[in-house]
């Protein structure tokens, strides 16, 4: 039986070299590949282009890579909550491409579905549309946006099996399944790794065909960005 299992994060990210383009799953700090990020920081791989909805916070997530100046370019939809990011952006050390969140998601989806481009109304008539092809369908304008190309996709799932099948939990799903489908090489880190056959095939979110390497992560912090509670009545 095919096994996609690797020992740890170090083995999982082997082959990532300076200047590559990476996708990193997660929304804010929710569902981010914590172990892979830590290992990228350990290895000091730099000049990276990172495609991720957000850029972490100062001392967690992609923020850790920013701090060590490993990121050359950030492609994201929202990059607030990060002072170091602001500093590097204003000083010109960091290149940033902001794109609408739905466009970001659908450009991942297109890559995973083998489609070269998508048409979306998001950004028509705004600066996002500059230099892009516009097509009119049924009287409405759409921008042509290209599928992403990423050397590696690093995703986080809740459970996975040795065949690379993945199940996500709650809103930690977010960009993970579509990035998993979009990487030339996809690395999945999971909280629980089980033998193939233990997950119900009906419950798989990402089929193992999209996943090249899988490992059980350790020491998940799962930090909460905005802890918000209500009062008991």
């Amino acid at each position: 039986m095919i096994t996609k299992v690797v020992k740890n994060a170090s083995e999982a990210i082997s082959g990532i070299t300076d200047g590559m383009t990476l996708m990193l799953g997660g929304f804010g700090l929710c569902g981010i590949p914590e172990n892979c990020i830590k290992e990228l920081v350990n290895q000091g791989i730099s000049g990276l282009t990172c495609i991720s909805n957000n850029a972490g916070v100062d001392d967690f997530g992609i923020g850790l890579m920013l701090k060590k100046r490993q990121v050359k370019k950030m492609i994201a939809s929202y990059v607030g909550e990060n002072a170091e990011f602001e500093r590097q952006l204003l000083s010109g050390e960091l290149e940033v491409e902001l794109i609408p969140q739905g466009t970001l998601a659908t450009r991942c989806l297109a890559a995973g579905y083998g489609m070269p481009a998508i048409f979306t109304p998001a950004g028509v008539g705004t600066e996002i549309a500059e230099g892009k092809e516009i097509r009119n369908f049924g009287g409405k304008d759409y921008l042509m946006e290209m599928a992403f190309e990423a050397d590696f996709a690093l995703v986080k799932a809740w459970k996975g099996d040795t065949a690379g099948n993945l199940i996500y939990r709650r809103t930690a799903r977010n960009f993970n399944p579509i990035m998993a489908m979009a990487g030339k090489i996809t690395v999945a880190e999971v909280e629980v790794l089980v033998a193939a056959g233990e997950l119900d095939p009906d419950h798989i979110h990402t089929p193992g065909i999209y996943v090249h390497r899988i490992f059980q992560g350790t020491d998940y912090e799962k930090r909460i960005e905005q802890r918000t509670v209500r009062n008991a009545v």
Binding site: F27, G28, C30, R170, I224, Q226, T228, A232
Partner: peptide, 21 residues
């Protein structure tokens, strides 16, 4: 749904403002 009661926050369950829900 509404924000969770204290102690019931789930890091895997947030809204688009990154708040626990």
């Amino acid at each position: 749904g509404p924000f969770p009661l204290e102690g019931m926050e789930d890091p895997d369950l947030i809204n688009a403002g990154k708040q626990t829900i």
